[in-house]
């Protein structure tokens, strides 16, 4: 493993040379991620790694792409999607136009899950899904809507657990080990790079989803990001976080109402 002092040196140098601040990232996870790319790329001395990051902007970019966690799946936590289908979408459906924001969307599996839900609720035609991530490489994957075919068995099970009634395979075309999702779903998606650490609000949304991103941030940064969401959310809009995340340390109680046990909050004032 790398030493704490080495990690702090890396954080400082990245900030100094590239202006990106990992200082508010949770250390336990960040350390594992940095060590992972360090090993993956065959480094044996930390100063060699540090000097590569400092002098080679291409390598710096690769390092950032590798240390940000990009593991995601379709219909992760089916019970969340069940509530979405039964309770949230009918409320959103009363609006003439629905704006959604997937913050930290990674390779887009959750964005396509949402598009499928909207389609089945008859709302996709009047929705626009903004999906952002800090990592430009994953956004390219997300735009294409191409996922490994071997995952479809698990995803279609998740989809059914989430109350899906259709034949899941109608949403994609299978070809040589890949599943390409229908263009009809991606037509209503807008992808762009956005950094939750340093970028500001860019629109007003009816629903913001940011699931399993805040777990990588310290309390201070979580507070800032949740306030960014608050600024970007219309009154009576919804905020959805990961199943183990909360807003309760970040925002004054009474401003949001939680949906029972789910990690969905409605902005009530």
């Amino acid at each position: 493993m790398i030493e704490d002092i080495e990690l702090e040196t890396l954080i400082n140098e990245v900030y100094e040379y590239y202006g990106f601040d990992f200082g508010s990232y949770s250390r336990a996870s960040l350390k594992r991620r940095v060590y992972r790319v360090y090993q993956l790329d065959g480094f044996t001395h930390f100063h060699d790694f540090l000097s590569k990051v400092r002098t080679d902007p291409e390598y710096y970019k690769r390092m950032v792409d590798e240390i940000t966690v990009n593991v995601t799946e379709m219909f992760r936590d089916p019970s969340f999607y069940n509530i979405l289908r039964k309770e949230i979408l009918p409320l959103l459906g009363t609006k003439p136009f629905i704006r959604l924001w997937h913050a930290g969307c990674s390779t887009g599996e959750e964005v396509y899950s949402m598009a499928i839900m909207l389609k089945e609720a008859g709302l996709l035609h009047k929705s626009l899904i903004y999906a952002t991530d800090i990592n430009a490489t994953v956004l390219e994957t997300a735009k294409k809507g191409i996922f490994p075919l071997k995952m479809m068995k698990e995803y279609s099970q998740n989809y059914r657990d989430a109350g899906g009634q259709e034949d899941f395979s109608r949403y994609y075309t299978a070809n040589y080990g890949i599943a390409k999702f229908n263009d009809e779903l991606s037509q209503k998606m807008v992808y762009s790079q956005h950094n939750l650490v340093s970028d500001t609000s860019f629109n007003e949304f009816d629903m913001i989803l940011c699931r399993n991103v805040l777990i990588y941030f310290d309390n201070e940064l979580q507070k800032r990001v949740i306030n960014l969401f608050d600024e970007s959310l219309a009154v009576l809009g919804f905020l959805a976080l990961g199943t183990k995340e909360t807003i309760k340390y970040s925002i004054s109680p009474g401003k949001y109402k939680q949906y029972e046990k789910e990690k969905i909050w409605r902005k009530i004032k």
Partner: peptide, 21 residues
């Protein structure tokens, strides 16, 4: 530990979760 997350330990006695590979 919850399912579907890795469980990590921070120096300040807090627990951290991670959805990586």
């Amino acid at each position: 530990a919850p399912s579907n997350y890795h469980l990590l330990f921070e120096k300040d006695d807090t627990l951290a979760l991670d959805t990586s590979e």
